[in-house]
Every structure is written in structure tokens, then in C-alpha cells.
Design a protein around this nucleic acid. Structure first.
Length: 521
RNA sequence: GGGACGUUAGCUCAAUCGGUAGAGCAGCUGACUUUUAAUCAGCGGGUUGUAGAUUCAAGUUCUACACGUCCCA
């Protein structure tokens, strides 16, 4: 009996001693047994010589039976090669005088062998639990089945896992638990690890791509007096020392533009933004945006940059300019398709009038879409575009020359009345990246803000707020510039073939778990 | 905000018409010196999300709530 178990109150059932779960007690008992055998339960370090992948790579053909590589010769040994590995015990097969374990580190999984005659402290291996992290050292050999395996001569526990691993066969399936205990998801589900490795590769590629083109990475403030750059409801918070209400940023745009005024000609930021809106399969209240701006170009120049970026990204991650998303193959070959918004809407909705004629559009919409009767006229174009045009845009497509009324920060089109020099990139039916010729006429920008303010006064709480400090910056002169924004989360969904943003966020926002006996307001 | 569905052992899942809540893995005890979802024998483990209601009897029916998934707005 261990101290833990024997010291527990004698009042209840064995399995509830000390309020701990049966399986936790069993593991604490095993830890105590290892301590009794002379092991330190929490050593400070372990001198690892190699990763699992390095050991496997040193002797190729050493995959599991049934693998594609040619099997190694059974019985082969390399007594001169010493390896010290560390990792989590994912599987343990004990057979009296011999035992096999699968040890997983970040690079991969290696089978290790404990033998009664070759491994020190062999008896104590029975106190290793699934999920424990151990350090092992020894020499490689090839088993009867042709699998490269490390024969362990010395080993030590590095930390005990006090909870059992999820089913080794089924893994962790419950989507909520996977998100709440992401660490368990990561240790047990290799495909989940792969998603976040893909995400890191995406961000790394974007940074390298932009850095190579002389863009400078910057950081704007997340606490802002006037949250701007898009239409969204912000989170509000209070700064005590200044006794002032701030908002968390809803986009990166207006501060990057201030830097264009300041003379930085190519800037980008990859950063967290916050929108106080609903949570669903494609929305999380905090998410990561890329925004990039360069001076002396327009939206056509930016479209070329964006398609080059995405093409190179898909090639870098997938090895070819194609990917499969939710069963559909998407082709990122250059150049991406350009599709005129007005023409596309007119054809898709079979309109016999110019959709920019908002009065006619209103009449038509009220007849065909009574559910939009309360939608303001200026948002109707956007709504109808979403219904009729977006689903058609599977392969990467720039939807060009969007209505001016929904683009308060964009230059009016140089030749087409009522339109803006704005192109929205769509992939797989959703908007991935808006691209602008940025409005740099300070007086025009002021007038646009005032129109937004009127909408806000009329009850549209998503309308853009007026930002006097930003207007002052514009009055100093911002060079003609192009800008773009892109959701990193959605981009990762595409590349990792996931249909929920929750799957590509390590720690998505979840409703707090109800506490037992907790007070509710 | 509305609707549908779901919540059972640590994990993955069963439980027929309302009638003693089960299995596999994990755990414990034992056997086993090349296993790999190891195998074999035995043993524990449950306030069936929470709170009520109906009933002789509720995992199962009803109500509310919590959390989740999907669809709609």
C-alpha cells in the first residue's frame, strides 16, 4: 500500500479516497512505488541526445510492419550507437520478462524495448502508466517483425500523468472536450497536431513572402479610443488610471494607414482582432488578421500581390497549386479569375435592371426576398451578393468593383459611377480577402464618416465611427496606396481542410463550464 | 433570437414497450522474455448533465435550466 492510499480517510469507498478518482489514485500509487525504487518523481532535466524522428531517420526502412519501406533485417543491432530519447508513453505491452512501449515526442513515435536482463530497474517498469513522460537510453536493434526499436538500458520517469489517456483506439472524439482540453487533443490526435503545424507554416510563409518584398512588420494598438477600419461591434473596456473607455480593435487598418502617412511605404501586421459578435462555425470573437499596405499602387497592383502570395503559399504547403477543401478541388493557378460584381449579381439573380438602381432593387428584393424588408437599402447589395454570387465562387475569384455605399474607406472607382475600387477575394464560397485602392482624400473621408454617423444615429450600430485623429493624419497627406486584409483563421481552414474555425484555433472561445454550486446572476 | 438533435464509467459507445444500467479500451490482481488495438484468467469502477413533475417503478415520459452539435434569422 502506498502512503497516498493508506493516509486517506477511511470513511468512504476505496475509489473516492481523498476525493480523487480511482485511476488517479492508482497512478499516485505507481509514482510512490517508483520513488521507493529510488527514482526522482520530478527530475529537473533530461539529457536527450536525439529525437524520435532522428533515430528513425538514422535507419530508414524501419517503419512499422506493413509500412511501405523495405523491412530491416530482423535481429540486426547497433551496439555502438547510443540514443537518449524522451517522450510520452502512448502504449505499453508488458509480457513478464519483456516489455514494449511506444514513446512519442514532438517529432514522432519510437518503440522501445525493456528486457529483464538488459534494462536496469526492470521491475519498476510495471509502474509506468500510459501518458507518463519518460526518458530512455540504449541502443537500437531490429525486432522479429522488422521494426527498429530502442533497447533500453537505462530509463527514468520524468513526470507522472495523473489522468488516463483517452481510448487509444478511438482517440478523443468529443469536439467540446477536444477544444476545452486541447493539450489532450494534441497528444492523442496526430491530425489535430497537423492542423496547427499547418497554421504555423501559413504564418511563416506569409511573413517570409512579405519580408522578401521589403514590407516591414509593425504592431498597432489593440486598445483604441475609436475602433475603426470596418463595420463591427467592438468589445468595450475601461482603463482605470486614465478613467477612460477603450475598445479592443476590430481591424488593423487605420493605424497602418497612419504609418503610410508617416513615410513607411510598405507595412503589414499580423495580429489579433476582436469583434463582439456571435460564435459559429466561421466566427470566433477573437481572430487573427493579416493586413498589408503599400504606397503608390492601387487595387489592381494589390490583386497581383495577393494572388502571388496565395499561389506560393498553396504550393509551399501542398506541393502544387491545388488543394482539396471539403471534397472540392480548388485551383490556385495564376492568374485568379476576375469577376465584375454588378454583372455577376445581375446574371446570377436574373435582374433586368441595373442593381445599382437602389430604388428598383428595393422593389425587386421586397417581392423576391421579403425577409430582407428591414435591411437598409445600402446593405441590400451586399446581402443579395451573398446569396446569389458568393456560392458560385469556389475557385479563387476576385469579385471586383464593389458598391461604394458599403466601402467607406475606399476610393471611388476612377470611371464607374457608384462603385468603389474594391475587390473581394472569394475562395470556396466565402470571402477571404478584401482589397482596396485606399481613400486618401481627407475631405472626402470626412464626408464618408459623416454619412456613417447618420446611419449610426439611425440605429445601425455597426456603422463606422468618426475618428478625428485618423482624419488629422490623412490631412497631412497619405500617398496613393493599396491595402488588403485577410483572415488567417479562414486561410488555415482552407489549407488544413477544416470546416470549423474552432478546429484551427488552439483555444477557441468557449462558454465557461458551469461550476457546481456557483452563483448565477 | 427561433427550431431540431444530443449529454450514460477516465475514453468510445450499448441498454427493445417505463421493469435489477452493460461492453471494449483504460484501472487493479495474477500468468507470460519479440509485442505492437499483445494475449489469457479473475476483480473493481455509475447521483445516467442539473433541478423538479408523473408513476408501484424513470437512462427511457413531461417541464425548466446548463452545456454542446446542426439548421434558420
Amino acid at each position: 500500500m502506498s502512503d497516498v492510499a493508506s493516509a486517506a480517510p477511511d470513511s468512504g469507498d476505496d475509489h473516492s479516497r481523498g476525493g480523487l478518482h480511482e485511476q488517479t489514485i492508482a497512478r499516485l500509487n505507481n509514482r510512490d512505488a517508483q520513488s521507493a525504487a529510488g527514482f526522482d518523481a520530478h527530475p529537473y532535466s533530461f539529457a536527450r541526445s536525439h529525437s524520435a524522428a532522428e533515430l528513425l531517420a538514422a535507419h530508414p526502412g524501419s517503419d512499422h510492419p506493413g509500412g511501405e519501406a523495405a523491412p530491416l533485417e530482423s535481429g540486426q543491432t547497433w551496439p555502438g550507437e547510443q540514443y537518449a530519447l524522451a517522450g510520452r508513453v502512448m502504449s505499453f505491452r508488458h509480457m513478464g520478462g519483456a516489455a514494449f512501449a511506444d514513446v512519442q515526442d514532438q517529432s514522432g513515435t519510437v518503440q522501445v524495448y525493456f528486457g529483464k536482463k538488459v534494462s536496469e530497474q526492470f521491475a519498476a517498469t510495471k509502474n509506468i502508466d500510459l501518458g507518463d513522460i519518460v526518458g530512455v537510453s540504449g541502443t537500437p536493434f531490429v525486432t522479429k517483425t522488422g521494426q527498429l526499436t530502442l533497447e533500453v538500458h537505462a530509463w527514468q520517469p520524468l513526470v507522472k500523468s495523473l489522468h488516463p489517456l483517452p481510448s487509444k483506439f478511438h482517440g478523443l472524439q468529443d469536439d467540446e472536450l477536444r477544444a476545452r482540453r486541447r493539450y489532450v487533443d494534441l497528444m492523442i490526435n496526430p491530425e489535430s497536431r497537423a492542423v496547427f503545424q499547418t497554421r504555423a507554416a501559413v504564418v511563416r510563409h506569409i511573413r517570409r513572402f512579405l519580408d522578401e518584398r521589403d514590407f516591414m512588420e509593425v504592431e498597432g494598438p489593440t486598445l483604441q479610443t475609436v475602433p475603426g477600419g470596418t463595420e463591427a461591434k467592438p468589445f468595450r473596456t475601461h482603463h482605470n488610471a486614465l478613467d477612460h473607455e477603450f475598445s479592443l480593435r476590430i481591424s488593423l487598418e487605420l493605424y497602418l494607414k497612419r504609418l503610410l502617412v508617416g513615410g513607411f511605404e510598405r507595412v503589414y501586421e499580423i495580429g489579433r482582432t476582436y469583434r463582439n459578435e456571435g460564435v459559429d462555425r466561421t466566427h470566433n470573437p477573437e481572430f487573427t488578421m493579416l493586413e498589408a499596405y503599400f504606397a503608390y499602387g492601387d487595387y489592381s497592383d494589390m490583386m497581383r500581390l495577393v494572388e502571388t502570395l496565395l499561389h506560393s503559399l498553396v504550393v509551399a504547403v501542398k506541393g502544387e497549386p491545388k488543394l482539396t477543401y471539403q471534397g472540392r478541388e480548388l485551383d490556385f493557378s495564376l492568374p485568379f479569375r476576375r469577376l465584375d460584381f454588378v454583372t455577376a449579381l445581375r446574371e446570377a439573380a436574373k435582374l433586368d435592371f441595373d442593381p445599382l438602381d437602389l430604388a428598383k432593387l428595393r422593389v425587386w428584393s421586397d417581392e423576391h426576398h421579403p425577409e430582407h424588408r428591414k435591411t437598409p437599402g445600402y446593405k441590400l447589395l451586399d446581402k443579395l451578393g451573398g446569396e446569389y454570387v458568393e456560392p458560385l465562387l469556389q475557385n479563387p475569384t476576385f469579385l471586383t468593383d464593389m458598391p461604394l455605399v458599403i466601402s467607406p474607406l475606399v476610393k471611388a472607382h476612377r470611371s464607374r459611377e457608384g462603385l468603389a475600387e474594391r475587390a473581394d477575394l472569394y475562395v470556396a464560397g466565402f470571402e477571404l480577402a478584401p482589397i482596396y485602392s485606399e481613400l486618401n482624400d481627407a475631405l472626402e473621408q470626412r464626408a464618408r464618416f459623416e454619412a456613417q454617423t447618420q446611419r449610426r444615429d439611425a440605429g445601425d450600430d455597426e456603422a463606422h465611427e468618426q475618428d478625428e485623429d485618423f482624419l488629422l493624419a490623412l490631412e497631412y497627406g497619405m500617398p496613393p496606396s493599396a491595402g488588403m486584409g485577410m483572415g488567417i483563421d479562414r486561410l488555415t481552414m482552407l489549407l488544413a481542410d477544416r470546416d470549423s474555425i474552432r478546429d484551427v484555433l488552439l483555444f477557441p472561445l468557449l462558454r465557461p463550464e458551469a461550476k457546481q454550486g456557483g452563483q448565477s446572476d
